[in-house]
Nucleic acid binder design. Structure first.
Lengths: 222, 222
DNA sequence: TTGCAATTCAAACAGTTGTATGAAACTATC
DNA sequence: GATAGTTTCATACAACTGTTTGAATTGCAA
């Protein structure tokens, strides 16, 4: 490969545009204009538009997941195979929140692209996304080890709510700022992380009689 | 005028298709095929595709908000101007959850359409959506009356998290079912509502030291 | 240099999109 | 039953999409 220059220029431009404007209204012509390359270059280097998107997503997906798992593994090792639930949750939502919030110029294009991908669900991405389940299962496993007296159902709901709060806060950050007239400071990322982790922790550790009357205690006595 | 038949057939078909497949890949030709009307009928009756979408969204938006506010108002009147926080939250997330989850055949097309609209953010909708802020402010007001010792910041974060859990659960319901291998039963809508309300309530009523270290624990779950 | 493959480029292609047109088919009023 | 107004229809249109093509250009080895 003589020069990857064109190839990586396309990748960078595409990621930036998709992150900013979404998949819906970014055309190949927008991308090649931003990258200062010829229109045919995309098909020459990637085969098709979908393959370009897929490569972008796979690359970032692997990187993000590795980052999260690194934090998780470190925490579990330090705790002798069992990490505090707060630390697990922090490893789950921290990297994404840090990448997508905070002062404008510090936001990672990569993370913003991943958020787009998790929202818009364009075909080439949807096809790949099922693997993410396996990734989440690892977190579910760590959470189970951390809270052995909790049923699987509670674990999964807690996981779901943690991701919900993180993603929704990112996605609707503008609206929250506007609604609260700036009182909710989304630039203070560590505060946001702490809030999400705190609420998710409460969801997972609150008294068992929180809601399900007599239903849940039967089958799962880990 | 003479016969609204064509007009309402288009509205119904469009809503159904948008709810099922999103705005991205539903064309006017898909809509008119589903509605069994001529292609030109859309432009004749609505002016343009965007105006069709806008009318759909405005209609549903008004209906949903009226439903939520009705529940809220009833609760506040019954409590003499101050409703329990759980009831307020239930009025906020209940209608949407009930419309979008539960047994397949009971799901409201209207609610599913609104979820799509809240996710995909197509131009004609984005333009209208800002009014939703005023609607949410009414809920923030009720929450403030219900929890007078809470700061505005806490109120807004609680509101944000409640919506986050409701919307995310709807949007990722398939994934949660798969991840939990069916253990999380999303057809049991009232259980889902109870879980969301319960966690959001904890977020709003937990020990005031929420902002401090992540170690704050709260056993006062209602 | 010559020769050859890799890369770039302008241009065109085939398909789809939302929209516009003008004639036909209705509907109701007189 | 003729007329005027509304609604439907087949069809065409212009703009845009991703993709392909084949010629020009580049880079590098012999």
């Amino acid at each position: 490969m003589a020069s990857d220059h064109t190839r990586s220029a396309i990748l960078a431009a595409a990621e930036r545009l998709y992150a900013d404007r979404g998949f819906g209204d970014v055309t190949l012509r927008d991308i090649v204009a931003e990258a200062n390359v010829n229109l045919a270059a995309v098909n020459y280097h990637f085969g098709s538009k979908d393959e370009l998107i897929a490569e972008l997503f796979v690359t970032r997906s692997i990187a993000t997941n590795r980052e999260r798992l690194r934090e998780l593994k470190a925490a579990e090792e330090q705790g002798g195979g069992r990490a505090p639930i707060e630390v697990i949750l922090r490893a789950l939502v921290g990297p994404t929140l840090r990448g997508c919030l905070g002062p404008e110029n510090q936001r990672s294009t990569a993370a913003r692209f991943m958020i787009r991908a998790s929202i818009e669900s364009v075909p080439p991405i949807r096809r790949i996304k099922n693997r993410e389940i396996d990734h989440l299962r690892k977190f579910a496993g760590a959470m189970r080890r951390s809270l052995p007296d909790r049923s699987d159902v509670e674990i999964y709901w807690g996981l779901n709510f943690a991701l919900a709060m993180a993603h929704h806060t990112i996605r609707e950050s503008e609206r929250l700022t506007k609604l609260s007239e700036g009182k909710c400071d989304l630039d203070d990322v560590e505060d946001v992380v702490a809030r999400v982790v705190s609420v998710a922790t409460m969801a997972l550790t609150a008294g068992k009689a929180a809601k399900a009357p007599a239903r849940a205690l039967a089958r799962d006595a880990g």
